[in-house]
């Protein structure tokens, strides 16, 4: 029971990050491999704010603002000039940005892991199970954010424009949609979600280092692919699925050392059976 709960909350974190990957892929048609490192940026923003005596709420705001600024600047400086370049060039640039962010963090904060105590939460017992309050918070807030995002995309002018750009950039421009602006907004939203993920992540593992974002980044990317990259509900489902499986594996002593292997094996399996992911849509190739 508590395993499932922990899994769901870890899944909510993965889902929040996966949304950034999937939205950027859907709209800008690129894999932003520096997205995981935005979590690290958020974590250091929280560390710095807390160290300066700031409240946890303020830390979250600072993290969101910092991550959004990083997301927008990275898009403008590194990716926008490559609009229309080969996907490989963009991909390599993204990897370069990832290393750049890690190196900057290392120069400023050092390579050593630092402890970040966001807040200490106890546990509540429901029936026989002990469930950590931080898991409950993560799960509830994560669900609210994702519901909000879904409503935003489906019901607002900007959200509809995002769907339009994701489906047909040229046709979207013919509608008078500023495609560059929509891509910028997408990066901003993805980065804000990553900032939220970073605070939840620190609630579970209260420590940060320059390479903090790598593993959750890769896992969330896996989740996005499992769910069907480009699909928003797919990223949510993929994230939650991956989180639950990870926690279940960790709770079984024989499997625990192989947890990561099991997760990636699942990715391979799903790609073999359904290459477009669980909720991915087959794109009709234009003739």
């Amino acid at each position: 029971m508590s395993t499932i709960f922990d899994g769901l909350s870890l899944g909510a974190i993965y889902a929040l990050i996966a949304l950034g990957y999937t939205m950027v892929y859907g709209i800008a048609k690129m894999l932003n491999f520096a997205h995981g490192d935005i979590i690290m940026v958020g974590a250091y923003a929280i560390l710095t704010t807390l160290a300066a005596g700031g409240h946890i709420g303020l830390a979250l705001v600072v993290a969101v603002v910092t991550c959004v600024i990083f997301g927008i600047v990275i898009e403008k400086v590194a990716y926008k000039p490559l609009r229309g370049a080969s996907p490989l060039a963009v991909l390599i640039t993204a990897i370069g940005v990832s290393y750049f962010l890690q190196s900057i963090a290392q120069i400023i904060f050092g390579a050593k892991a630092q402890t970040v105590t966001v807040a200490t939460f106890g546990t509540v017992s429901i029936g026989t199970a002990e469930i950590s309050i931080s898991s409950i918070i993560t799960l509830i807030v994560g669900a609210v954010i994702m519901a909000g995002l879904t409503l935003f995309v489906k019901n607002t002018r900007t959200g509809r424009a995002m769907l339009a750009v994701s489906e047909d950039r040229g046709a979207a421009q013919l509608m008078g949609i500023n495609v560059n602006r929509i891509i910028m907004i997408t990066f901003a939203i993805g980065s804000a979600l990553a900032a939220c993920a970073s605070i939840f992540y620190l609630m579970q593992i209260p420590s940060t280092e320059p390479t903090l974002g790598s593993m959750p980044g890769i896992k969330a990317f896996t989740a996005a692919v499992i769910g069907g990259i480009g699909s928003i509900p797919g990223a949510m489902i993929g994230g939650v699925l991956l989180g639950v499986i990870e926690k279940i594996c960790l709770s079984i002593p024989v499997l625990a050392p192989y947890t990561t292997a099991v997760e990636f094996a699942m990715l391979i399996l799903i790609l073999l059976v359904r290459p477009i992911g669980l909720l991915g849509k087959k794109r009709r190739e234009k003739v």
């Binding site: 769907l163 047909d168 040229g170 013919l174």
Partner: peptide, 23 residues
């Protein structure tokens, strides 16, 4: 920029219709 032409009063029905299939 192309997206500003619509508000000037230009509109185009593209080849192959290109309606947003999923909407």
């Amino acid at each position: 920029p192309g997206h500003k032409l619509v508000s000037l009063g230009m509109s185009q029905v593209p080849e192959g219709r290109r309606v947003f299939q999923e909407l």
